[in-house]
Simulated assay, not measured.
Amino acid sequence: MELDEIVEDDEDELAGTYCAVTDSRSIPVLHPHYIGVVLSLGLLDLDAAALKMPGRAG
């Protein structure tokens, strides 16, 4: 799965590359980019459960 490119003309709209991070097809794409962060937070792996966990922001 590739990330979708979303571009809006209105200044109040979001622009950039977005994906549904908890989608089972997105996780393998995100894994190599974020596994270091996940491990540094004390989690064992990047999976849908970890992505849906509340807290630990910022």
Rank of each mutant, 00 (worst) to 15 (best):
G55L: 10
S24I: 15
G55E: 11
M1F: 05
R56Q: 14
D47N: 15
D9I: 01
L43F: 12
L41N: 12
L46R: 04
L43H: 09
L3Y: 06
S26P: 02
S40A: 13
L51G: 06
C19L: 14
G55I: 13
P54W: 14
G55V: 14
E5W: 06
S24M: 06
Y18E: 11
L44D: 03
L30N: 01
E5M: 12
G16I: 05
M53Y: 13
D4W: 02
D4C: 03
G16H: 08
S24F: 08
A49I: 12
V38W: 00
L41P: 02
C19G: 14
V29N: 11
D47A: 07
G16K: 04
S26K: 07
E8A: 13
D12S: 00
Y34F: 15
D47P: 10
L14S: 14
G58F: 00
S40N: 14
G58L: 03
L30H: 02
C19F: 08
L51K: 13
D10M: 01
V29W: 05
G55T: 13
L39P: 01
M53Q: 11
E5H: 10
L51R: 11
L51W: 01
K52D: 15
D4P: 04
L39G: 00
A50K: 04
G58E: 03
D4Y: 08
T22S: 09
A20F: 08
R56I: 15
L3G: 10
I27W: 08
E13L: 04
I27L: 06
I27H: 01
A20S: 09
E11W: 03
R56S: 15
S26H: 06
L43G: 01
T22Q: 04
V37E: 12
T17D: 06
E2Y: 09
Y34D: 00
D23L: 08
H33G: 05
H33P: 03
L46Q: 04
A48N: 07
G58H: 00
M1P: 13
L3P: 10
L51Q: 09
G55K: 13
A20P: 05
E11T: 08
I35H: 07
L14W: 05
D9H: 12
R56G: 08
T17W: 04
V29Y: 12
E13T: 02
P32L: 01
G55F: 14
S24Q: 08
D23Y: 03
L46D: 02
V21D: 00
V29M: 15
L41C: 09
H31W: 01
R25A: 11
R25P: 02
M1K: 14
V7G: 05
D45G: 03
S26R: 05
V7W: 05
D23M: 01
L51A: 02
S24E: 11
G36N: 11
Y18M: 14
S24R: 13
A57S: 11
R56W: 15
S40Q: 13
D9G: 10
I35G: 02
T17F: 03
L3S: 10
L51V: 05
T17C: 06
T22H: 12
A50P: 01
T17A: 01
